[in-house]
Each structure stands twice: as C-alpha cells, then as structure tokens.
Design a protein around this nucleic acid. Structure first.
Lengths: 219, 219
DNA sequence: CAGTTTTTTTAGATTCGCCTAAATATTTCA
DNA sequence: TGAAATATTTAGGCGAATCTAAAAAAACTG
C-alpha cells in the first residue's frame, strides 16, 4: 500500500472533487481549489504521475488513475466519518465540522477507520448530506436536484448542500435551512432568479439564485 | 498561542517525560528517546529556545520553561484522551492504542479536545493507568510503587504500567496482567530478584525483576 | 493568421526537519 | 594530569513542499 503524505492526499482529494465523475482537471483549477500557485501543482502532478496515482500530460491536464481514485475515496471516507462523529457524538454544529475533519482525515490507520465506522453504526451520509464511502469505496449517490429546479408548490426535503464555506453555512443557518429541512418554492422571480421559499411549516424566506443552486433537495 | 509543528510537539513531550518532575535533559538522552541523531536535537533545541519553550545551554542541557511545560501537558492531555477513546469507545485493546494516539494527538483544536473530554466523561486516567491532565493542565498523581517493592502476602491492585512497548504489553497480556488486576507476591527469589506472584484469585506467575519494576501498584 | 492574452512549465530559491562527517568540548581514568 | 573516550556542536547537504520570476506553449481575437 502506497504511503501518502498529507499534502499528496489533499491533492488527490481535490482532483477527485474537481473531476466530479470524470473528465480532465487543469492546473489552474486545482491551484485555485488548493489555494496554491500553479507551479506547485505542476511539481506535485509529476510526483503523483510517477506514483501512478494519476495520468498527467503536460499542458493538457490530469485524471486520477483507478488507484488514485481508490485513494481519494479512502480519504473522503475518513473525512466524512469524522464529520459524522464530530456532529453526532461530540455535539459540534454541522457547519463547524469540516475544518476539524480536514485534519483528522490524515490519520491513516485502517483499523481506526473501520472501528470508527462500526462505532458510528455504519452511517451512509455525513452531516452535510454527502454520502460516506464504505470500506470498499462504494457509496450511495448524492442527490443532484438543486432547489433552483424544484417546481412551484412541490414540497421537498433538503438532502445535501453543495459547499462548506463558512459564509455559505452562516447564510443557511440564518435562513433556518439544514439537512432534512422541508421546503417548498412559492414564487420564482425571473428578473434575478431569486425564489420565495416556504421553510418548514410557517416561515418564508427569499433565496438568491446562487444559493438555490447549492441547496440540493429530494422529493 | 504558539503554533507548533508535530515535530516540535514530539520534542516537547519527550523532554517532559525525560525530565519527570524536574532536572536537566541531555542531548544524548533525547536523541535516544526520539530515535534521532544528536545533531538533529541540537538544531531543534536552538529553535525551541528561541521560541522560549525551553532553556538551552550548549554542552549543558535543557529544561522546559513554564510555557513549554504547559504545551507538553496539552499534548499529553490529547494523547491520553484519545487513548481512552480508542479503548473505551472503539474497543481497541489497551496495548494497541498508543501508536494511534501518537498521530491523533497532533490535531490541535481546543474545542475538539474539550468536547472529546466531556464526551468521555472527563476521565482521570488513560488505559495504561496514566493520569490525564485537565484543560488547565492539572492532573492526579500517578502511583509510584512498583510491584518489586510490594511486601509478601500483601494484596494490591495494578494501577499503572510504566512503558508501552509492544514487547512489554505482549508479555503482560501473556501473564494475564492489566490495569486493575489484583496481585499478591508469594515468594521473592533473591538470586535474580524474580517474583512468584498470585494473579487474580487462582493463577500463579513468575515475574522477572525487570518486569516487576514496570508494574505499578496501589494497596 | 499573427499578435496578444492566458495558462502552464521551468529554473532557481526558501524553510523545515532531518542526516553525515568533522570539529570541539567535556568527562573519565590510568 | 594528560590521553582516551564520550558527548555535543558545527558545517554542509538532502528531500519535501512550497514560492517567485521568467520562459514557453496554447488559446483567443481582431
């Protein structure tokens, strides 16, 4: 089994998220996502290519190899299990768990992860609504329908939030929206794409088009 | 608050343990304890002295400053809380917890540590019987009487084990000795200092002088 | 399609934590 | 006390992960 540094793990994870199913990632996109300079990305891509964790073609971009994807899923598994632990067992608010899990995820002990998984009752989703890969890297599909596409008057439930910046989470908290919240779109303003949304039985909020795209719902 | 690297934390922790209450630590002792070369120790001592975490006098040795001691206690607190968590909540055997806690201890989030402490019920001792510092750095005293000094026929309870090498822990497991085990010395062989010990009601084991020194008991 | 802009890579430097080898200080002891 | 042994420090180097500045490739665009 390959021994990866925390840095290498962060690169793999970021590429996995940027690929989102397939496709090629550019130096610039990865540099932005990791808050690093493009030159640093190029350096690391050469290294990860040499380790066969991804395919790198200069000036073209990179794609995770099967081994790279497997490694990324392992990291994501650890991240989301720790998020679940922090929220469920330690009583962290869901918007606080991400940065702490960023650090805990790099403790690589197979036995620790599997025992943690069992202790938590093999949860399938983390507090943000994202699916947790099992020990073989399999996971449920995350919902994909954003609130912006929900038809009027159709009740739905928030199942995921596509982002974890503190600004986003603060805004959601303000509007009373979290995983599991019942929502229903009352009006759609075509001028700016904003929505008037019924939140839980008796609360009405205005939601910008941008925000409505990050709130993922299921019917 | 000073931001310490995992390496710096390991140095502080090792010095704290070597000081054991007071006194001066030598380059060689620290090098052995950390499995590093003396030259590396000198480098780091200069750095930690500059950060005012310890007092370093070339060719003489070093001692933690009050801030260094405080930092070390914080690291030990995290280490022992994670050990407790691993054994108590995840079902690790007590001899397995140390290496995993070595990594978890470097995740420095005040809130994480304090919430973990509360979740565990503010435990006072880790699975090895060592006391866990509270959030202010205070802790109970560990027992100090080794089994080698227990008078004959006097029943006692194992409260701590002074060491955590896998070899030591394997031997203890073999002899059926853990924290809380009732023991009583039946015979003492002056030739080699070995003991014949009654372990729990109905088991008799021979314990070498060396082993008897690492088993700490209370009456 | 040729110049301009953008993206990417290369070259070279820096910091951290470690190393080896050599120099130097301290301690031991004959 | 002076030579040998031991401990410590200094000097210089290395790999990892970053950076800046400059060169080169690719992509736009008038």
């Amino acid at each position: 089994m390959l021994n990866l540094s925390a840095s290498e793990e962060n690169y793999l994870k970021a590429i996995y998220h940027l690929q989102a199913g397939g496709g090629n990632v550019s130096t610039k996109a990865l540099a932005e996502s990791l808050q690093a300079r493009p030159a640093s990305i190029t350096d690391m891509m050469k290294k990860l290519d040499a380790k066969k964790l991804l395919h790198y073609r200069p000036y073209y971009g990179f794609t995770l190899s099967p081994e790279g994807r497997k490694a990324a899923l392992g990291i994501i598994r650890r991240h989301r299990l720790w998020e679940f632990f922090l929220a469920e067992k330690l009583g962290f608010a869901w918007e606080e768990v991400h940065p702490v899990a960023e650090e805990l995820e790099h403790v690589r002990h197979k036995k620790l992860v599997d025992k943690l998984d069992a202790f938590l009752g093999f949860p399938r989703f983390d507090p943000h609504g994202d699916p947790i890969p099992d020990s073989k890297g399999r996971m449920d599909k995350a919902g994909t329908v954003p609130l912006s596409e929900l038809p009027l008057q159709q009740p739905a439930r928030v199942c995921r939030v596509a982002g974890q910046s503190s600004e986003l989470l603060e805004l959601l908290r303000e509007k009373g929206i979290g995983i599991g919240t019942r929502v229903e779109v009352r009006r759609r303003f075509t001028y700016d794409g904003s929505l008037q949304v019924q939140v839980r039985p008796n609360r009405s909020e205005t939601i910008s088009a941008q925000l409505a795209q990050t709130i993922i719902i299921e019917l």
